[in-house]
Simulated assay, not measured.
Amino acid sequence: MNNRLVELAFTDRVATLTLNRPQSYNALNQEMLKEMVEALEEVKKSSADFLVLKGSGKAFSAGGDIKMMTMPETGELFPQILETIGAMVLTLYTMPQLTIAAIHGSAAGLGLSLALACDYVIAEEQAKVAMNFIGIGLIPDGGGHYFLKERLGAHQAKHLIWKGEVLSGAEAQRIGVVDEATADLEQALQQKLSEWARKPVLAMKETKQLYMQQTAAELQHILKMETKGQAKMRDTKDHREGIQAFLEKRLPTFAGR
């Protein structure tokens, strides 16, 4: 599979899925989300043992496409978009392959949720990592609540979401948001793949499935809750102000309404 927005390549035991919208920092619009689901389903059915998720250009992913959020028709399509996001994340989280996200440049919002759905996350030391939905008056989606709770615990996850601050890859590794921070992303990625390739991968996959079967239902529940919560937040004055401030490149003035 090779197309304009998502590129998928197979080499030996490794599938590499590349977000390919570099002019928009791989911001995820509706078409790209659909292609992601299709590509992940293809990997899921393949004989590959490992999946690498990366971005082309200067960033891993800037998150959801802000321009898509401002389109008049988005309101009607919003439930469908959130459903596609849920399908993408759940497919990635439950697939039998061992998965690695390789973050360079930045991973923000939905882009970070997508990375955290992987089994292992490597980031450049100077990468910018942020769960920054709060800046536009929204809550995390794509399972962001679930993945941060799993990594940090509910209390720390809550405060990270509320702050919405940008962390370096090194800072994200220090507090446990990502698994590894490195000065050489490609070298670290290849080292991890080589390490896994030398192991009894069937045993690793069995452990993954054991944990996944215990937790997938919780992720599905949180995805549904995020969909309801996000719908409520989209109707707030704070969200409209956050979007307008982003487009005007200024700080938002929130009123709690």
Rank of each mutant, 00 (worst) to 15 (best):
M88S: 14
G144R: 01
N2E: 11
D235E: 15
L110K: 01
G57T: 06
V177M: 09
M69D: 08
E171F: 12
K128H: 11
A216V: 10
M88K: 10
V52I: 08
A87Y: 07
R250V: 02
G169D: 04
K163L: 14
V89D: 00
I161N: 06
L116V: 04
I136G: 00
G229S: 03
S24P: 10
G135M: 06
E171H: 14
K34W: 14
K199I: 07
P22N: 08
F78V: 10
L110M: 07
E35R: 10
L98Y: 00
G143T: 01
L152P: 01
A127D: 05
L138C: 07
L53D: 00
I222S: 02
E31T: 13
F10A: 12
T236W: 05
T207M: 15
Q97A: 02
G256S: 06
A154W: 09
K228E: 13
V14H: 05
R4A: 14
T236G: 06
K208G: 03
G144L: 02
K205F: 00
T207H: 15
K232S: 14
V178T: 06
G153C: 06
V201G: 03
V52T: 04
H221D: 09
L5W: 09
Q173E: 13
L19G: 00
E165T: 15
M95I: 04
G256Q: 03
W196A: 05
Y146M: 02
L8P: 03
K199H: 11
E42H: 10
R240L: 09
L53G: 01
Y211T: 12
T84A: 11
K163N: 14
K44Y: 08
Q187C: 15
V178N: 02
H159I: 15
L92M: 07
A117E: 01
T74C: 06
A157R: 02
E248Q: 13
G153H: 05
S106V: 07
E35V: 10
H221A: 10
L160Q: 06
